[in-house]
Simulated scan of single mutants.
Amino acid sequence: KDAVSHLIFSNPDKLAINNVSFLVKNTDVQKRARLSGSDDKENWYVIKNNYLLHSMKSSDETTELKMLNFPLSDYAFFKLEIDDNWKLPINILKVGYYDTQKIKGLISTFECPITEQKDSLKTSYLKLELPELMFAKKLRFEVSGADYYSRYTTVMVRKERVNKKKKTKAYFETIASFDLNSNSNNEVNLGKISTKELYVNIENRDNRPLRVDRVEASYLNRYLVVNLKPQVDYVLKFGDLKLKQPDYDIVNFSNQIPEDTPRLKHDQIISLQPELIETKEKGLLDSAYLIWFVIGAVGVVLAFVSVKMVKEIGK
């Protein structure tokens, strides 16, 4: 009716679901759809409007599985209305849903080696050196030396700037501050930073200095979602800190990306930048012929002086 296909399916146990999947015969069309719910199949209430059904084809099978996400609902019946635009409908074979659960985001951690710790003027100074440029969002400190403590702590990075006299000056910029406290987990949020060195100042006041046994950095794992074709080799290039975030259409359809998207593992990361070899310009003293000439001249002068001194001694 009115060039709209109606697909009604039941949820007999009235389970709270937030997705529905359907198996469709391969087709190369785009259609708009709307999802609504009802408890009696007479009074319908819209759940989500303006779905875009597309890419409903598989290169390996004659069918394709598509998933639609929507706000959590527990209606006894659902109705998917597909606008056919006065064209033939698509062939939907099966309908179902995936029972999903939320888990905490996975976190990657790495240790920040403590290369220096000095205690002077009621303040402890620490230097953390990483083997290479690393990205971190949090730091966690493990300390000892007191049962109860509360110390104001700052985390800094070393930067450089050129002054009016064209000279490079180093300075320290504070990126985070917190209280190192025996009643907390001693974590501090750094925001987003990539660095090889971190500097930490702990104000001890009149207390004995604490000993920092270990510092651990961490960041929340992020994932890149991309539609890849099978049996094709792909190369992911990254590392340019000056690049801006791209503006893609997929942002508007993020709620339609399946939550059970499979994860892929990459091969070894290879640096594409050639190693910089410092080449020193040859100066006047770097010439081999000039050096031998100087040595010869000095030898001649020494021989002349020696012969003259022998004659003076003989007289």
Rank of each mutant, 00 (worst) to 15 (best):
S5Q: 15
H6M: 02
I8T: 15
L15M: 06
I17M: 06
I17N: 04
V20Q: 04
S21M: 04
F22R: 02
K25Q: 13
K25G: 13
D28G: 00
V29H: 06
A33E: 01
S36Q: 15
G37K: 12
G37V: 09
N43S: 14
W44N: 06
Y45W: 06
I47M: 03
I47S: 07
K48R: 14
N50L: 03
L52E: 03
S58I: 11
E64F: 15
E64C: 11
L68I: 02
L72S: 02
A76M: 05
K79Q: 08
D83P: 03
D84F: 08
K87P: 06
L88D: 10
N91W: 03
I92E: 01
K94R: 06
Y97W: 05
I107R: 10
C112G: 11
S120I: 12
L121S: 12
T123Q: 09
Y125K: 11
Y125R: 12
L128R: 07
L133D: 14
M134Q: 15
K138P: 02
R140Y: 02
F141T: 07
Y152H: 14
Y152V: 14
K164E: 15
K166T: 01
Y171V: 12
F172A: 00
T174F: 00
N185T: 05
N185S: 07
N185M: 01
E187A: 01
E187P: 01
N189L: 02
K192E: 11
E197D: 09
Y199V: 00
N201C: 06
N201S: 07
I202K: 12
N207G: 03
P209I: 09
L210F: 11
V215H: 02
E216H: 00
A217G: 08
N221P: 07
Y223C: 05
V225N: 12
V226D: 05
K229W: 04
P230R: 10
Q231N: 15
F238W: 04
D240C: 05
L241F: 01
L241E: 04
L241C: 00
L241A: 07
Q245D: 10
Q245F: 08
N252P: 01
F253R: 11
I257N: 00
D260T: 13
L264S: 10
H266M: 15
D267F: 10
L272R: 05
Q273S: 03
T279C: 08
L285E: 07
D286G: 08
I291K: 15
I291M: 09
F293Q: 11
V294C: 10
I295S: 13
V301G: 07
V307M: 14
G314Q: 14
